[in-house]
């Protein structure tokens, strides 16, 4: 009690001041229309920005979920595009009966491990046999191709990056359809080499290089990159072309896996087997 009195004597002025000012504030806000409006408005601003901050945080946590669902949706939409279909057009009595059959389906995946600075670079993605992955499926992202599935585990798969010295991908110049192979010479992670383009082909710097579709790995027409420089090795009949990749493999996070539904049939035919 004594201490309490002492406290009041010591800080009585301050306590009274704070207490009465709070009371005044209460009165001002509750019984004055103008101040009340300002108060309500300001507290709305404060509360509103608080909610907004909170939502930003929540959104941030949800972001990966959102991206997952978007990637999934993307994969579904890609399967709907005409490049992914096998066209069975039959001409019957001049009436055109157009039928398409699904040729490619796509599955979204997340890169969980990646390397770009070695001679043989690999990625690990979070899809495996359980999700229907098999070796020799193509992997790409939203800006270009990424690699080819090499080993599949139950839940994860190992992807041979296009930055791998054993990786060969059939590619073509979009403008004139000359095709060759994409390889990597192991120097720069943003450049690959397109070989086997014959020297009678007319090339321009900036020509788009895309997948040729001459394999069961990638559908035709997928962007790979652009012609950066090209030259003829002495005595060679084929150009050596430096291609600047459209994508940056060091940043690939969401990728898609190509599933060619007609692969077995094509492979069988190509190997001379019979039905």
């Amino acid at each position: 009690m004594r201490n309490l009195i002492y406290l009041f004597v010591r800080f009585g002025g301050l306590l009274t001041f704070v207490g009465l000012e709070l009371l005044c504030l209460y009165l001002v806000v509750n019984f004055n229309r103008k101040q009340n409006q300002i108060f309500v408005h300001s507290s709305n601003i404060v509360a509103g920005s608080l909610y907004e901050r909170f939502n930003e945080v929540v959104q941030f946590w949800n972001l990966s979920e959102v991206s997952d669902s978007l990637a999934k949706k993307n994969a579904q939409l890609m399967a709907e595009m005409s490049e992914a279909k096998f066209r069975e057009t039959i001409l019957l009595d001049s009436s055109r009966n157009e039928q398409t059959q699904q040729r490619y389906t796509f599955m979204e995946a997340k890169v969980i491990n990646n390397s770009i600075n070695q001679h043989s670079n690999n990625l690990t993605i979070n899809r495996g046999r359980k999700h229907g992955l098999r070796p020799r499926m193509g992997v790409f992202d939203d800006r270009g191709i990424v690699g080819i599935v090499r080993n599949t585990g139950r839940h994860y798969s190992n992807v041979m990056s296009i930055l791998h010295k054993e990786c060969r991908i059939s590619a073509a110049i979009r403008r004139n359809n000359y095709f060759g192979s994409i390889v990597w010479n192991g120097s720069h992670p943003r450049y690959v080499t397109l070989t086997d383009i014959p020297k009678h082909a007319k090339l321009l710097v900036g020509d788009t290089v895309q997948t040729s579709g001459y394999s069961t790995i990638f559908p035709a027409g997928m962007m790979i990159g652009r012609v950066d420089t090209f030259w003829l090795e002495p005595g060679s009949n084929f150009y050596t072309i430096n291609v600047a990749l459209g994508n940056d493999l060091s940043r690939s996070k969401y990728v898609y896996v190509v599933n060619d539904l007609m692969r077995e049939e094509i492979e069988q035919v190509e190997q001379g087997g019979d039905e």
């Binding site: 301050l14 009465l20 005044c24 504030l25 009165l27 001002v28 806000v29 019984f31 004055n32």
Partner: peptide, 15 residues
Amino acid sequence: DSPGVHASAGVFMAW
């Protein structure tokens, strides 16, 4: 007709 406005100023002044 302005509850609290003059009072708060008075309290401040006294403080």
